[in-house]
Write a protein that binds this DNA or RNA. Structure first.
Lengths: 236, 236
DNA sequence: CCCCGGCAAGAGCATTGCTCTCATCGTCGA
DNA sequence: TCGACGATGAGAGCAATGCTCTTGCCGGGG
């Protein structure tokens, strides 16, 4: 909103300077986020790093939460990019695409733990989830949706009992958002369980629930991906 | 460590006073945590609430993180209690016990969102997971382990391909910690996927990933519990 | 009985988010 | 062309935070 329009080519010098500064700010903030985590992200430290006075920073991001929101959106985008390219490189088999997506999510999470925590961990401050973040969050889901759609089209998607009542409407809405309205509700809900299960596993690993319990995390995850892929109806 | 031994009956008056103060402090802190969340938990506010000067508080909890650690342990205990009683009330069928445990976890999480976020969300400060929290975390898992053991004894636990390599040792160690060393590794790992899937679902719901997507959260969760119970080999 | 040690209190330091005011300077319209 | 407007950066300031230090007080074990 206030901080916006990152790349608007031919505008006045002032606007170009502002866009440049905004991205310089988020870059510094992202650096600080990667080092010390969201809890320690400080306006003054960011302003110090880019040689600015803290009050001037507030002109671009009126509030610390606004800065965090920008970082959240950027993190969603970065994760979505990683997932996209992994899915594209995985070929046509929907099961392989699921595996690629799952491993891309985990790989990105392990490489950017603080950013992952920012978007999938507990909401940072008092909080409110600005509408800006919703589409970015949806981008992450898209390759998974395409794998489901293709498997359904190929007839290899396992069936599941369809829901009734309001849940059926929810399923239909989500299928629409995934641009796969032909997906049956039962399969969609099963896929949703696999999806949340994937992030549950990654969060457990990242947030230390496997500490002192599991050493071979790679093998554990590989097995979980197979099991969850079966839940989604994509594997086997 | 520093703050400790809550109930040690016959000690000197000074020690009894200290124990009483410690629990008064954590009570006030828990109240504040429930209202405003962990991020806003402030030493000074806690000390203000119990009519103490902030510097005196530091004698009992040298650091804000120490206070948070105490709250983490208490939260694990509270969740474990809720899960325990739900499992006890669920009767003998392992599938029913799984359903009871799962719904108890979600119910407690919805009733105490900030406490849930504290223990299963992103780690709050700079981070480190003190060893104190590990046994408390294990207590939550215990009723689930008993359901698995009983199902295995009754021969109703679904089989799963056993792991090899280091993962087999991990599985054996966890089975031992659950006091069910006879559990086959494959079944144990499948159960672990169901377990992390359960918390993934609850976290998604609590942290807003289902916002603007799913309305009928109860039905969604009920379906997920059935699917995950099948993954664990307990349902069906 | 008396002295050591646990204890509360207060002042103080560095840091934080955020607001206000002031001076500067680019931009756009008259 | 030039002047007013608005965006910008600097600085001081406020209330709050976590944490440390010093100063006394007072209870209980030697």
């Amino acid at each position: 909103m206030v901080y916006g329009d990152a790349v608007n080519a031919s505008r006045t010098a002032r606007e170009r300077a502002r866009a440049e500064l905004v991205s310089e700010i988020t870059a510094a903030a992202r650096r600080q986020l990667a080092e010390t985590g969201a809890a320690a992200l400080s306006m003054r430290a960011v302003s110090r790093e880019i040689g600015m006075v803290s009050s001037a920073l507030h002109r671009y991001f009126p509030t610390r939460d606004d800065l965090l929101t920008a970082l959240i959106v950027q993190s969603y985008d970065a994760l979505a990019d990683a997932v996209d390219t992994a899915a594209a490189a995985a070929g046509d088999d929907p099961a392989d695409r699921w595996r690629a997506v799952a491993h891309a999510v985990r790989g990105w999470a392990l490489a950017h733990p603080h950013e992952y925590a920012l978007i999938y961990g507990s909401p940072v401050p008092g909080y409110r989830a600005p509408a800006d973040t919703v589409p970015a969050a949806g981008r992450v889901l898209a390759p998974f949706g395409r794998a489901l759609r293709d498997a359904h089209a190929a007839g290899t998607l396992a069936g599941a009992p369809d829901p009734d009542g309001p849940l059926a409407a929810d399923a239909a809405r989500i299928a629409g958002a995934l641009e796969a309205p032909e997906l049956p509700g039962g399969a969609l809900l099963a896929a949703l369980t696999a999806w949340s299960g994937l992030f549950g596993h990654v969060s457990f690993e990242l947030f230390g629930q496997f500490d002192n319990a599991v050493d071979d995390r790679d093998a554990l995850f590989a097995g979980a991906v197979e099991r969850l892929g079966r839940v989604a109806g994509l594997v086997r």
